[in-house]
Computed example of a mutant assay.
Amino acid sequence: MEDIAGDSTLRSAGEVAEARQALLSRHAHVMEPAAVSRCLGVDAADWRRFALHWEDLSHDEYAAREGTHRLRRYGHFSLDRTGALRPMPHLAFAQPEDTNPLYVGEERHFEPLTDAFVADPLFKSLLRLLGRIASCLRDADVWSVKVHPFRVVASTDRAGLPTPEGRHRDGVTLVTSLMISRENAVGGQSTVYTPDGTTVLATTLHEPGTLLLGDDRATLHEVAPISPADATRPARRDVLVTTLTAHHSAERDAQVG
C-alpha cells in the first residue's frame, strides 16, 4: 500500500494544521487556492486539466423534479490511514433519513465517475489531503469517501439551486466543497450554521481551488441560488463535493449510499 508520508505531506503540514484547528474550534474553514495547490503539489495547468472532467457529467433527473438543471456523477471509495485508496461497489446513493428532506428513504442512481476522473493525480492527492485533515475529527482506521462532481446551470427564467433541499446536513463526518469553475454566475454564497441557526461561516467560492471544509456532525449548510450576470447567456457553477465518514471497516458501508 502507498503511504501518505512524503514531501507533499511535509510541505503542507502548516496548512493542514491550520485547517484541523479551525475545524476543532469553529467546525468550518476555508482553504485558499494557493494553500490547496501547495498541499496537492499542483499548478494552474493541473487545475485546467481537472476542470475538463466537468464537461463529461450526466443529467440529474432527481434535481430536475425540483426544477433544477444539474449535472453530476458519483463515486465511492475507501481510504485507509496509509493513504491507500480502493474503489467500492457502484451502488445507489442514499442518505440517512434525518438529513436530506427531499429524498427521505429514496435510493438515487447516478452515473459513475469516469476512468479518467478517477485516474487524475489531482483527484487522488485531494482525497489523501482530506483524509489527513479529517483525522482531527475522528481517529478512523478507514474512511468511507463519497465523491460528487456537480454542475448547476441557471438562466434568466430558471435559477440554479446548488442545494435544492435547503439547509441540511449530509450525515457524514467531514463535508467539503471544492470550487472548480464559475462562468457568468452571481450568487452561490455558501453558509455554514450551528444547529440552532447561528451562522458559523459565510463565503462565496469564486476562485478555482478554493476548498470549504465543515464538520458535518456539528453544523448544517446550504448554498444560495445562482443566476446569470449577463442575461443573454446561461450561468454555471462547477464544484466537487466530497464527504468522509469514519468507519473501522468500509466493507460495512458498501451497501449504504
Rank of each mutant, 00 (worst) to 15 (best):
V118L: 03
T199N: 01
A22L: 14
T245K: 14
M31E: 12
R49A: 15
T68G: 07
A44W: 02
F50D: 11
L244H: 07
H248R: 15
V42Q: 03
R20N: 03
D56E: 11
T243I: 14
E18R: 15
D60Y: 06
H53G: 06
L122I: 03
T219S: 12
D141L: 10
T245P: 00
G160F: 05
A17P: 04
A185S: 15
Q95P: 06
V223S: 05
A116L: 05
T176A: 12
L24G: 11
L240E: 03
T194Q: 14
T203L: 01
L102Q: 12
A231I: 04
G160R: 13
R81Y: 05
C136F: 01
R108C: 12
G83S: 11
P121Q: 06
T210S: 15
V104R: 15
V30M: 14
P121I: 03
N184K: 14
L213D: 00
A154E: 09
V16D: 07
H109C: 10
L205E: 10
L24T: 09
G257C: 05
W143C: 12
T194D: 08
R182N: 05
P101L: 04
W47S: 00
A45I: 02
L130C: 04
L10W: 05
P89N: 10
W47Y: 01
D56M: 02
L57Q: 05
N184L: 10
E107L: 11
Q255F: 10
P96Q: 13
E61F: 07
L130V: 09
M88C: 15
K146I: 12
L212E: 07
D196W: 08
E207L: 10
V42D: 02
P89I: 08
D43R: 13
D216M: 07
Q255K: 12
Y74C: 02
L244Q: 05
G41P: 11
E111M: 13
V118P: 04
V241P: 02
D170E: 15
R72W: 00
T173F: 01
A64W: 04
P208S: 03
P225R: 00
R138W: 02
Y74N: 00
V147C: 14
S144H: 13
L178C: 03
P33L: 07
T99Y: 01
T243C: 11
D3V: 11
L57S: 06
Q255E: 08
P33C: 11
A84S: 06
L240S: 09
A246C: 09
P101G: 08
P89V: 08
E2T: 13
T203Y: 03
G67S: 06
S58Y: 02
P101E: 05
A235M: 05
T219L: 02
L240T: 02
G105R: 07
S125E: 04
D3I: 12
Q189H: 12
G257H: 12
V16I: 15
R237S: 10
E32L: 14
A185I: 07
A154R: 13
P208F: 06
S181P: 02
P162I: 10
A45W: 01
